[in-house]
Computed example of a mutant assay.
Amino acid sequence: MAKVEFLGPIGRPSLDVDIANLNELKDYFKEDKALQEWLGICAVAVNDTLVCDLNMPIASEDKISLLPPVCGG
């Protein structure tokens, strides 16, 4: 199963998911209203590489990171 990690202020433990692509991950979280707000503003990385294509295939050993926007100086 692929591992989803929620970084920064999202504040959730990692989760193992059995999905074929990022579209399926989006559907997986569709009932979670609090997480939906984060998904609208987060960047997504697969194996530490930023991605934009929701049809990107996901393998069982992949790590998916949800990266919320940050401020800093």
Rank of each mutant, 00 (worst) to 15 (best):
Q36G: 03
N23H: 13
D27G: 11
V51Y: 12
G73V: 03
P13E: 08
K26C: 00
V46P: 05
V70C: 13
K26A: 04
V51R: 11
D48Y: 06
E31W: 00
I10R: 05
I10D: 10
L35A: 06
L15K: 11
L7R: 04
D27M: 08
E61A: 14
D18Q: 08
F6Q: 01
E61S: 14
K63M: 11
K26T: 02
S60N: 10
D48L: 06
P9N: 09
K33R: 15
V46G: 06
S14E: 14
L35I: 01
P69N: 05
G40F: 00
A34W: 04
Y28I: 01
L7V: 01
D53Y: 09
P57R: 15
A34L: 04
I58L: 10
V44M: 07
P13V: 00
K33E: 11
F6V: 01
E31F: 00
Q36F: 06
F6E: 03
N21H: 12
K3W: 10
L39H: 03
A59M: 09
G40K: 15
L25F: 12
K63R: 07
C52G: 09
L39F: 03
P57V: 14
L39V: 07
I58Q: 06
P9L: 10
N21S: 06
E61T: 15
L66H: 09
N47Q: 02
P9A: 10
D32F: 14
E37M: 09
A2Y: 02
G72Y: 09
E61N: 11
P57M: 05
S65A: 12
D32M: 05
Y28M: 05
M1W: 07
I10C: 13
S60T: 04
I41P: 14
A43S: 14
M1C: 05
E37N: 12
V51P: 11
I19P: 10
T49V: 12
